[in-house]
């Protein structure tokens, strides 16, 4: 469903990704781990099309189409979802109005009829329940005055509502206490249906105790330097990213 081939990308003329490869099949959960500054968040932004990132080389194929050629909203409508690390506030726009607009934009792409207010409300209530957000959050402005944990849960709520085919979670665990972490993980796990794929970007192994990945990739210096199964995450937790220093050095020498 997603094939990343030799991806090179830079921000403000500084190369961040230096030949990244990744192949994700339907239903798979891939965790991307790595030290700060490795390019993890950059990967999420490039896949979702954020401006300011220059792709200089490589291809990304999403369900057989050239992802890099699509506008941001087109990628979203075709099933790519990014849960933000730092969700931004949109004052005065209710979460409900925002999500209804969003759900219907995506339904339109799929050739489905727009949801009525009642239908939408029913779904939204269920989604809120799943991430343990009270219904008040639907009426409040998008992320307006939400705590860090509420913002993260709100992202997962949106993901549940939008039913994407590829979910990219950018450090959805950062700043969460253990209870909130479980809520987020449960929300994600509830969406694993054998078809939907996930890219879980995280710094710590903690989240992966709750969301069991099929693959773990270590990203360092703009490349995947190591791939393995879930046990790789445990190794990293024990040994830290220090061992990468050597690998990196070798690569730059090579």
């Amino acid at each position: 469903m997603l094939k990343i081939n030799n991806l090179h990308a830079s921000v403000e003329q500084k190369e961040i990704l230096k030949g990244l490869n990744l192949d994700i099949k339907p239903g798979e959960v891939h965790a991307i781990m790595g030290p700060n500054g490795a390019g993890k968040s950059t990967l999420g932004f490039i896949l979702s099309g954020r401006e300011g990132y220059e792709v200089s080389e490589g291809q990304v194929e999403f369900n057989g189409e050239d992802l890099l050629d699509m506008a941001i909203e087109e990628r979203a409508r075709k099933g790519l979802f990014l849960a933000f690390q730092y969700p931004v506030e949109i004052p005065g726009v209710s979460n409900m109005a925002f999500m209804k607009e969003s759900v219907n934009a995506i339904r339109e792409q799929r050739g489905e009829t727009p949801l009525t207010a009642t239908e939408f409300l029913k779904k939204a209530k269920e989604a809120c329940k799943q991430v343990q957000l009270s219904l008040d959050f639907l009426k409040r402005g998008v992320n307006e005055g939400f705590s860090g944990g509420e913002k993260k849960r709100n992202e997962i709520m949106q993901m549940i509502l939008l039913e994407p085919s590829l979910c990219i979670l950018d450090e959805s665990d950062s700043g969460l206490d253990i209870d909130a972490l479980q809520v987020v993980a449960n929300g994600v796990n509830s969406q694993r249906d054998g078809k939907r794929s996930f890219i879980i970007i995280t710094h710590y192994q903690r989240l992966l105790d709750y969301i069991k990945p099929d693959y773990v990739h270590i990203l360092a210096n703009g490349k995947v330097v190591k791939s393995g199964d879930a046990s790789l995450a445990t190794d990293v937790e024990k040994e830290g990213y220090a061992f990468l220093g050597q690998d990196n050095a070798e690569e730059t020498n090579a």
Partner: peptide, 13 residues
Amino acid sequence: DDQMFLCQQRGLD
């Protein structure tokens, strides 16, 4: 830009 990006990432033109 952040607000615009959030909206567009949620499928809005």
